[in-house]
Amino acid sequence: MTATLGALHERLAGVVLVGRELPEVLTEIVQISRGVMPGADATSITLIRDDRAFTAAYDGQIAMDADELQYERGYGPCLDAGRAGELFVVHDMATEQRWPDYAVHAAERGVGSSLSVPLPFQGATIGALNNYAFRSHAFGDADVALGEEVAAFVAIAVGNAEAAARASDDVLNMRRAMASRGVIEQAKGILMERYKITAEQAFTLLTHASQRHNVKLRDVAEELTTTGVLAGA
């Protein structure tokens, strides 16, 4: 078990998080997870956004099929793990009673057992790591320990991607703000020269035009710098 955990940590440490799209990162992680977890024949990651669940990555078609069965019904071990933050093991899908309708259809597709591990993120749960096996009773304590390690790393990857997205949005918003400020300053200069007024008076003219026509201040300024026309003047 210690050797397997060590191998898992070594492989996860080699996953590059920066400069890659999240689906690509998560696909690599599920491939690693499936490779080191003794009981798993297929692995997937379910993410939940605004109460909508979707499979962000998978390795093995049966994982996607089993995930979709749960999404169609609105319940199942992976959804309940993702929503409640609890770990669920289905030892024998053929006799499972907690999600009977799902279990029947999953067993028909060849799922014998499953392990669903919640993804913890900043005190909440954002989804689940789902592991499926063709045989029953495939998942034991060693699989649970490995699954929890992988789930923690998935949460780090998702958090890193969200932080990068926020940073990108911040940069974009800053650039937009700088562009808006630039065109407004240019428009003020035009009005100051045209009417021999102060910067404050020029800004007042722009804001009044914006309010009268219910148009953004930047758009009023851009029209003036482009056409020389001040709206309403």
Score class of each variant (00 low, 15 high):
M1H: 11
A3F: 11
L8H: 01
H9C: 11
G14T: 07
V15A: 05
V15S: 06
V18A: 15
V18E: 15
V18L: 10
G19L: 04
E21V: 11
L22C: 09
P23K: 05
P23V: 01
L26M: 09
E28F: 04
D41K: 04
A53T: 07
A57E: 11
A57R: 08
A57M: 09
D59P: 03
Q61F: 06
A66Y: 06
D67E: 15
Y71C: 01
Y75V: 07
G76L: 09
P77T: 11
E86D: 07
D92T: 03
M93F: 10
W99A: 04
A103D: 01
V104R: 15
V104H: 11
A107E: 03
V111M: 14
V111Y: 04
V111K: 02
G112R: 05
G112F: 06
S113E: 08
S114Y: 04
L119A: 07
P120K: 02
I126A: 08
N130I: 01
N131M: 15
N131T: 10
R135F: 06
R135A: 13
F139L: 01
F139H: 02
A145I: 14
L146S: 06
E148P: 00
A151E: 06
A152S: 13
A152F: 06
A152C: 09
A155T: 05
I156T: 13
A163M: 14
A164E: 15
R166L: 12
A167K: 06
S168I: 10
S168V: 06
N173S: 14
R176A: 11
A177R: 15
M178S: 12
R181H: 14
I184T: 04
K188C: 13
G189T: 07
M192F: 04
R194V: 11
R194P: 03
Y195W: 12
I197P: 02
T198N: 03
A199Y: 09
Q201M: 12
A202Q: 03
L205V: 00
L205D: 01
L206C: 02
L206H: 02
S210D: 01
R212H: 07
R218F: 01
V220G: 00
V220Q: 01
E223F: 00
T227S: 14
V229K: 11
L230H: 00
